[in-house]
Amino acid sequence: MRDRTGEIVLRAGAVGAVEMPSELGRRVLARLAHPGPVVVAVDERAQEWWTMLTAPVHHNLCDCATFAMLAATRARLVPYGHEIRLPAPRDTTRRWLDGNPADAYRPAPEDVVEAIRVCRLW
Rank of each mutant, 00 (worst) to 15 (best):
120 R>M: 15
8 I>E: 11
97 L>F: 09
81 G>P: 01
122 W>C: 10
53 L>V: 06
73 T>M: 12
12 A>W: 06
57 V>C: 05
21 P>S: 02
36 G>S: 02
80 Y>G: 09
85 R>I: 05
74 R>E: 15
116 I>R: 06
27 R>I: 06
37 P>K: 00
100 N>I: 10
47 Q>I: 09
102 A>Q: 15
78 V>L: 05
92 T>N: 08
11 R>I: 08
8 I>H: 07
63 D>K: 09
66 T>G: 02
5 T>I: 05
56 P>R: 07
69 M>S: 10
111 D>H: 14
54 T>Q: 00
65 A>K: 12
25 G>I: 07
63 D>N: 15
95 R>G: 05
64 C>T: 13
78 V>Q: 04
93 T>L: 11
122 W>K: 06
63 D>A: 08
4 R>C: 09
23 E>L: 11
109 P>R: 03
58 H>Q: 10
105 Y>K: 00
41 A>R: 15
29 L>C: 08
19 E>W: 09
98 D>W: 13
117 R>Q: 10
14 A>I: 11
59 H>E: 14
84 I>Y: 04
32 L>K: 07
9 V>A: 12
66 T>E: 00
105 Y>M: 01
87 P>A: 03
54 T>C: 08
116 I>V: 15
105 Y>D: 00
90 R>H: 11
13 G>A: 09
15 V>A: 06
6 G>R: 09
9 V>K: 12
103 D>C: 03
58 H>I: 08
38 V>K: 03
112 V>S: 04
38 V>P: 06
22 S>C: 10
67 F>D: 10
79 P>A: 13
7 E>P: 02
76 R>I: 08
6 G>E: 07
57 V>Q: 03
6 G>P: 11
52 M>Q: 10
16 G>I: 08
89 P>A: 11
28 V>M: 05
89 P>R: 10
28 V>I: 07
21 P>L: 11
5 T>D: 12
61 L>Y: 09
94 R>P: 08
38 V>F: 03
40 V>P: 02
11 R>M: 11
68 A>W: 07
98 D>F: 12
